[in-house]
């Protein structure tokens, strides 16, 4: 379900808790009043309250915890229900209050409260951090988006300049012309070099620009670097090896 419903439940639970607390408070007050005004606990009045057995036991236990004597008579109003506990309840209040026990109860309470506080603080801190992080995340995301946009833009530029048509245009601007048919230098099995094809100067296409046409095809002398390059790449054993005229 949705968050608001949850919130409402919590709120309701809070409200319920508050009501509960209020009730307990009232009960405690009632308890306090009973201490101050024992006459109101006259046996004649007791049956009106019609406490359940469990409630009786709870009161008995509280009385025991608080180590007060007057818890006794309250329990004793219903003799025979729990004779053993009654007996204990009878015996304990007779002892002197033990300070060590009181101190440990206080420590326990302090411990619980501090744990609670630490827990609440941690939760708060964590959720604050999470929110702060989500802002940081947003900033980072924006940064990533901007950078990937930039990368995309640069990639786009590279790709458009890298395409065959753009390269051909650039080459033309630089005065380059297609090489035409190259001549090949073939190294025979005997190591002799023979030329296949007819090396020609590359000619600029018909509508030349105002720039001077550059001759790009100058065949290297036979058996020179082209043939050497050839022998390197093919091992020089067969007749079909060729060096390409990079004109």
């Amino acid at each position: 379900m949705t968050a608001p419903a949850r919130t409402d439940k919590k709120r309701a639970a809070g409200a319920a808790a508050k009501t509960g607390a209020a009730k307990n408070g009232a009960a405690a007050k009632a308890g306090a009043t009973t201490v101050e005004q024992p006459e109101r606990l006259a046996p004649a009045e007791r049956p009106r309250r019609t406490r359940s057995a469990a409630a009786e036991r709870a009161y008995a236990r509280r009385a025991q915890r608080e180590g007060r004597r007057d818890g006794g008579p309250r329990v004793r109003t219903r003799p025979g229900t729990e004779p053993v506990r009654e007996a204990r309840a009878e015996s304990r209040p007779r002892r002197q209050p033990v300070p060590r026990k009181q101190a440990s109860t206080a420590t326990f309470v302090v411990l619980v409260i501090s744990m609670l506080l630490v827990g609440v603080a941690t939760t708060l801190w964590l959720s604050t951090q999470a929110i702060a992080d989500s802002y940081k995340l947003d900033d980072a995301k924006k940064g990533v988006a901007a950078l990937s946009e930039q990368a995309e833009q640069l990639q786009r530029e590279v790709t458009s300049m890298d395409s065959a048509s753009a390269l051909a245009k650039r080459a033309q601007e630089l005065g380059m012309v297609p090489s035409g048919d190259p001549a090949y230098l073939v190294v025979g099995p005997d190591g002799k070099v023979r030329m296949v094809g007819d090396p020609k100067k590359a000619e600029a296409p018909k509508p030349p620009k105002t720039t001077t046409p550059t001759s790009t095809s100058t065949p290297p002398p036979a058996g020179h670097d082209a043939a050497g390059h050839d022998a390197d790449s093919h091992g020089g054993a067969q007749a079909d090896q060729h060096g390409q005229d990079h004109g």
Binding site: R156, T159, S160, D162, S163, A164, S165, A166
Partner: peptide, 8 residues
């Protein structure tokens, strides 16, 4: 859609 080669 970008077509870097144009007519290509």
């Amino acid at each position: 859609r970008d077509y870097p080669g144009h007519n290509l």
